[in-house]
Write a protein that binds this DNA or RNA. Structure first.
Lengths: 125, 125
DNA sequence: ATATCTGTTATATATTATATATAACAGATA
DNA sequence: TATCTGTTATATATAATATATAACAGATAT
């Protein structure tokens, strides 16, 4: 897979994997219905314990990103519909409060910030 | 102060305090040069241990948000200049990668996302 | 049938992050 | 002298993160 883990990061390994899988879906690098490696395979590839991957897959399942069939394995949810529940919007709103505040004080203009957003969104289709 | 801590949150208390102080500066609720409560006073107000507040103040000092004079106390840095070092831009960029990806997949359009950014930025002066 | 692959569960351990609890110190100030 | 600052030291508790072994049940290929 395309996963790139930074072991020295302050972001937990399981979170890095979740982030990159979700971004992989948005970028189209992971197609809906596509199989993911088995928990043991991915753990082996990355060089981590399989429980960590198992935790990732279960959380992704819980949030609707993947479906798990016992023994056919894990695949990106072919009927992906994780659309914005009010709870998600609230958490996004909360995150942007503090992210924009710090960015502003660090001299990142509104225009520059929006440019960063557009650069990202333009990669999603 | 205006701090509102959620003890059940998955965001650590010290991080919540940092977030709200930085946002307080951006909103103008905290003026440059303004005194902050002493570590013991703020801890008492919130109902937490003073070491937690001490940790916050030291990190804020480390990052340039406040200055600490032994015994005059802690104040918002009157010469605030935390402007964007390359390291910060990189971390912001990394954060936006995953934030925009999930937002996109959850049905938050680029226009809606930008609207959220503008709502926040318009509060800063 | 047997071996091998899946996810799953159980148990145990190690490390780090977060938060608290007490105590004491040194400098400044009233 | 008493009281306020930030600071430091030590100890403890809890939770989050990650690993290590082992075993189980269902599916599949040989």
């Amino acid at each position: 897979m395309f996963l790139q883990i930074e072991f020295e990061s302050d972001i937990p390994i399981y979170q890095q994997i979740k982030n990159q899988i979700i971004r992989g879906i948005a970028l189209g690098e992971l197609k809906l219905g596509e199989d993911l490696p088995s928990v043991r395979q991915l753990a082996s590839d990355i060089g981590i314990n399989f429980h960590t991957v198992n935790k990732v897959y279960n959380q992704l399942k819980q949030e609707g990103w993947v479906v798990i069939h016992r023994k056919s394995g894990v695949m990106i949810n072919p009927d992906l519909n994780v659309y914005n529940n009010k709870q998600y919007i609230e958490s996004l709103d909360e995150l942007l409060k503090f992210t924009t505040a710090e960015a502003y004080l660090r001299g990142v203009t509104k225009e520059k910030f929006i440019e960063l957003i557009e650069e990202n969104y333009n990669k999603y289709f």
